[in-house]
Design a protein around this nucleic acid. Structure first.
Lengths: 117, 117
DNA sequence: TTCGATGTTCGTGAAACATCGAACAAATTA
DNA sequence: TAATTTGTTCGATGTTTCACGAACATCGAA
């Protein structure tokens, strides 16, 4: 497992973000992460093979949408909400609202119920 | 020249919009159209072959971002700003602001200077 | 060290995309 | 009718993306 590359805030490219969010699975992942909670890979439920999930998470990471932390053999993802807001104000909010409205990425979920307080 | 297909407001899909806006040329076209003025094909300057430009304009149209009107042998494009705002509030504004900030799509321009009154 | 869990990477297709030039179609004009 | 203009469509090409299974790497536990 190689240490992942995360772009700096000012390296986040608009086209990269748009491309990353043009896939339903990835939008679903972002929606799941939208509550700000860090999630382990294993918590994420998506109808794709694990290698494919790894691919999608990589695209999100490379685009600057998420941050990955490694702990032992497990990885955790976090949505870079503040960074995104600083870079492209209002963009993520608008996309999330639109995704909710259309229910894009509903195929993605977390193992346990949502925020068990 | 076949009459183009324009999706209804509630047929506009988020992933389609995001995909359409993940290309610098198309973002440039949207930026050029952002002032709300209708533009003729011929006014649009982009560093691609005319068939490619036609393709990009088609992608934008199919995604619901623009509306095409035909007049004789010429065509005119218009950004569907209100429709977009109604469908995905704030999304287009955020993308446009981000595009300005990064100067994405600067390769696209209009023939004459901007709005000669 | 051996095993198991967890991700990553590789090799491979299928599909989609961007791009071009050439051929085509439709309307205007000569 | 014949040229011109304007945009579309076609076919070809190379790149990228998504997807999978298999193999590999890493860490913690037995």
């Amino acid at each position: 497992m190689r240490r992942a590359h995360h772009p700096e805030v000012d390296e986040i490219a608009l086209t990269g973000v748009m491309a990353a969010l043009s896939d339903p699975i990835r939008i679903g992942l972002v929606r799941v992460l939208a509550d700000g909670r860090e999630r382990g890979w294993g918590e994420l439920r998506a109808p794709v093979a694990k290698s494919t999930l790894s691919h999608h998470l990589r695209v999100l990471r490379d685009a600057g949408l998420t941050r990955t932390r490694q702990e032992g053999t497990r990885c955790f993802v976090l949505l870079r909400r503040q960074d995104l807001q600083a870079r492209f104000p209002g963009l993520l909010e608008a996309v999330l609202a639109a995704a909710e409205d259309e229910d894009v990425g509903r195929q993605v979920s977390v193992k346990d119920g949502p925020h068990p307080a």
